[in-house]
Design a protein around this nucleic acid. Structure first.
Length: 494
DNA sequence: GGCTACTCATGCGG
DNA sequence: CCCGCATGAGTAGC
């Protein structure tokens, strides 16, 4: 419950941040947090040592302010956070959490040990504030949360913070820094029995360097270069050598009968990259005047339909409105799960709203005539996007004309999306996207991250409930016992 | 309660 | 791509 509340808040943060982005805002993160702070939309405001409810080991954050809002680390800039313990005679500080930005001593191979420097740079460090708190925590032996700050390999200017669980402080000493000043050093050691977080990142970095170091590797690239990024096939669970045979296809193959007669032509005439708010851009106008995407393929909010610029739109190739047509951007792997067949997960961290993949396969609209229902078909009920769930949805904007569901069969041909399993508490969702090519309108289903997804976390979506009035709406699978393990599990899925 | 110092943030421009 | 710079905001401590 509380976890969900946290997620809503982070979602709100993202939402506000995004709307700020659409304007002329710099530092949208700070504006978003200011809005949330002033409205008391935050959790765990009382400082505590040990875990923070709602935050799990491995959770990732893209801004320091995100960690302030959830109470993981209340300092907006400082690396050491602490609380004041009122003892019998005097008050003393006790460290609660530290952010290791990785500027110092990151060479250490052991991911369970952190050598941390005290704060203060210009002169000899003094044993006050955070430094004193670390010293007291060393004496008391209390648990200290550690957040690892890492460079994002895909975007060198941004930083990602990983909650690496609880550590205790083992030693402290004074050292001469390069500047000639004395600085405090602390040896901080990870408590045993915790699931991997930072160590997972280290492993992934190793696999990227040399894919053969990946244990259980079956195929380096199951797409056979159909995608621009290789997708590894991995099984470190049992002896199965791969999923049943299929042909990899990166895009949707439309059957001859498939026609979106209800969509009128809409392409733009822009000569540059399309701009949010440009009234002359037909694609933007269709999207309600604002770009549906910000940054690097990040969807601002879920909509009944997103109108992308298509291959025949004259705008430049770097137009930000072609997200779902540009292929995979995150480094994925297909892996054998313990009890749910093959699944999909990512080597890269995924920011909330990020485009992951489309659902490729053979598209028909034959559901109307009741001829589908084969195993491997997936019915995307594009007529009821909002019924399955909402994700930062824009209210209103119901101008939408899609009288039948989209049926895509990935039984014989398909892409990575065919491996995504169901969850009642999913971390991705699907979004209908259309674009135009030679005055023909094409409908796609694209998957986006619902929240920040740490590396090596299985990607899932909600398969939804069948429509009684749509033949084939049972998805051909019938009722399946759900193994998603969520506390909100509905027990079965279609 | 107000004020200020402190701080391993950020994004942007050069 | 790396650096410097302006701007920044929560918290502790007075």
């Amino acid at each position: 419950m509380r976890f969900d509340a946290l997620r809503r808040k982070v979602g709100q943060l993202e939402d506000v941040k995004d709307s700020q982005h659409n304007g002329n805002a710099k530092r949208a993160d700070l504006k978003a947090s200011a809005i949330l702070m002033s409205n008391s939309i935050r959790t765990n405001t009382k400082k505590r040592t040990g875990h923070v409810p709602g935050v799990e080991i491995g959770d990732i954050f893209f801004f320091r302010m995100e960690m302030c809002l959830v109470g993981l680390h209340a300092q907006s800039m400082a690396g050491i956070d602490y609380l004041i313990v009122r003892g019998d005679r005097e008050e003393e500080p006790l460290a609660t959490s530290i952010v290791s930005s990785g500027y110092y001593d990151n060479a250490a191979d052991d991911t369970d040990i952190l050598i941390y420097s005290g704060h203060g740079e210009a002169s000899d460090q003094k044993l006050v504030r955070g430094n004193l708190a670390l010293e007291r925590s060393l004496q008391k032996g209390n648990e200290v949360r550690v957040i690892r700050g890492l460079k994002d390999a895909n975007s060198p200017t941004t930083k990602i913070y990983v909650y690496d669980g609880l550590y205790t402080i083992q030693e402290s000493w004074v050292e001469k820094a390069k500047t000639g000043c004395n600085i405090f050093k602390y040896k901080i050691v990870r408590m045993s029995g915790q699931p991997g977080a930072f160590s997972v990142w280290k492993s992934v970095a190793q696999w990227k360097e040399s894919v053969s170091s990946r244990v259980g590797l079956i195929l380096h690239d199951l797409t056979l270069a159909a995608e621009t990024i290789p997708v590894a096939l991995v099984n470190d669970v049992d002896g199965e050598r791969g999923p049943t045979c299929f042909t990899y296809l990166a895009s949707v193959r439309y059957s001859k009968s498939f026609k979106l007669s209800h969509q009128t032509s809409f392409g733009c005439n822009c000569r540059n990259a399309c701009q949010s708010g440009d009234e002359n851009c037909a694609c933007m106008t269709k999207n309600g005047g604002q770009t549906p995407y910000i940054g690097n393929g990040v969807l601002v909010c879920r909509k009944p339909l997103v109108y992308e610029c298509g291959p025949t739109c004259p705008c430049t190739a770097n137009c930000k409105n072609r997200v779902s047509q540009t292929g995979l951007k995150v480094h994925l792997e297909v892996f054998k799960t313990k009890d749910r067949g093959w699944g999909l997960r990512s080597w890269d961290p995924i920011r909330a709203g990020t485009f992951i993949c489309i659902y490729a396969g053979e598209a028909t609209n034959k559901a109307i005539s009741g001829e589908v229902g084969d195993s491997g078909d997936y019915v995307f009920d594009t007529t009821r996007v909002y019924d399955s769930f909402r994700w930062n949805c824009e209210p209103g904007n119901e101008e939408y004309d899609m009288p039948y569901p989209l049926v895509i069969s990935a039984k014989n041909v398909g892409n990575v999306a065919r491996f995504m399993n169901h969850s009642c508490e999913p971390n991705t969702f699907w979004q209908p996207v259309v674009y135009e090519n030679n005055s023909e309108t094409y409908l796609n289903v694209a998957f986006f991250a619902m929240r920040h997804i740490p590396p090596m976390t299985e990607l899932t979506y909600d398969y939804g409930t069948p429509r009684a009035d749509v033949p084939g709406g049972s998805n051909g699978h019938g009722r399946m016992r759900c193994l998603c393990g969520s506390t909100r599990c509905k027990g079965y899925f279609v």
